[in-house]
Design a protein around this nucleic acid. Structure first.
Lengths: 208, 208
DNA sequence: CACGTTGTATCACGCTTGTGATAGAAACCA
DNA sequence: TGGTTTCTATCACAAGCGTGATACAACGTG
């Protein structure tokens, strides 16, 4: 009982293929023909689902951001109200959450890698620039919310400049992700994670 | 009295042209023809100074790293023995130095931008990978040396894990540079600098 | 059955790419 | 001056690119 192909599923397959190509050979090698091959599709079929190359790129980047963003938001949900946990655990949970943005396994490594390529490409590609901007704002908003919760429940030193700390933490995560993704030999992913945990520990209130 | 062209100067001109193209349109658009045009040269002339495209890319990346690295080392020299200054100023000088890696003016913005493009390209370009590795190691070595000096002269809290703090500071600078270069509207370069200064202040010894 | 939609597959076109080959001008040296 | 090296300029080629056009099978629907 054959049916029409689910176009949404097809698009997802194509995007997955594109991600594999990007991880393996970089965004600049992700031409329509190469992506089509990787997806086991004819270029004509691929073009039936994506009107143009720009269209594919834009859709792929949006998909990536939605996946990562969705995962993060879901994890925020799971944690729920941080205030129910002891302060040590609150900071640990916050770090766990942000570890989603570090290349600690194959999945996350792929996501970080693809993210880097798209974000840098967005600088000179107007079609992607809006999404990159969105991602930057969204990431800061998430970090800010985490810090605010920690602050409200007394899991971090009082009187912190949350705006400043948001930028510091966001930049730290970006830098750790970048370093661990591009130079795992120089910065081991586990080291990156431990630095992140230590950073959050450095925000804890004084012992007395 | 015409003389033979200084090939070294010519190569430098070509590399400068390449940098301009990369800043303006991205590394991906920096083809031999485009770079030659930007340099006001014929592609044939360009190829007289660079055997191949890979050769040009490699030479350009090495040039960039030497420029930035040289500037940093020179500034370390200028500062000399940090221990001669009061602790507050030592930390400020350290931050000043690292600000060389933030896009605080056109020159630094160009350098950071080109750096990002080359380092990400290096991931899938074996010819550039060694240089990128070198840069990553060198940056950490520099940061480590700065922190060690601050530590020796008591300008930072005693008992710090210098390895950990090196990675934290290096990642922070990377993240701030990346954010401010790619999304200056979201992260103003001056904000990035102030975050960097604040970070070093957070390492100061307790008041008592 | 017939008809419109959806999906797959190919061809051709114009363009850009890196590169090999070549020719000739310009500069230097003997 | 003649000869060698340095430099500029151009052509041709194969390869890859995005894309428009088209043909045809597969499918769902009336």
């Amino acid at each position: 009982m054959p049916k029409y192909v689910d176009p949404e599923a097809r698009r997802r397959e194509v995007v997955d293929a594109l991600f594999r190509v990007v991880v393996r050979e970089g965004l600049q090698r992700a031409s329509l023909r190469v992506v089509a091959d990787e997806a086991g599709l004819n270029i004509g079929s691929l073009r039936h689902y994506f009107a143009s190359q720009q269209d594919l790129m834009e859709f792929a980047m949006r998909s990536m951001l939605e996946r990562v963003g969705g995962r993060l938001l879901r994890r925020v949900e799971e944690i729920g109200t941080l205030a129910e946990h002891p302060a040590d655990e609150q900071r640990r949970l916050a770090a766990d959450l942000l570890c989603e943005l570090l290349p600690l396994d194959e999945r996350r490594r792929a996501e970080v890698t693809v993210f880097i390529d798209f974000v840098t490409a967005a600088r000179t590609n107007p079609a992607l620039d809006g999404l990159a901007q969105e991602a930057a704002v969204g990431a800061r908003s998430l970090v800010r919310r985490i810090l605010a919760r920690l602050d409200e429940s007394g899991a971090v030193r009082p009187g912190l400049d949350l705006d400043q700390e948001t930028e510091r933490l966001a930049a730290l995560v970006d830098g750790l992700g970048l370093g661990a993704a591009l130079h795992p030999d120089v910065l081991a992913p586990e080291t990156a994670a431990s630095v992140l945990y230590a950073h959050l520990e450095s925000l804890r209130p004084p012992a007395a």
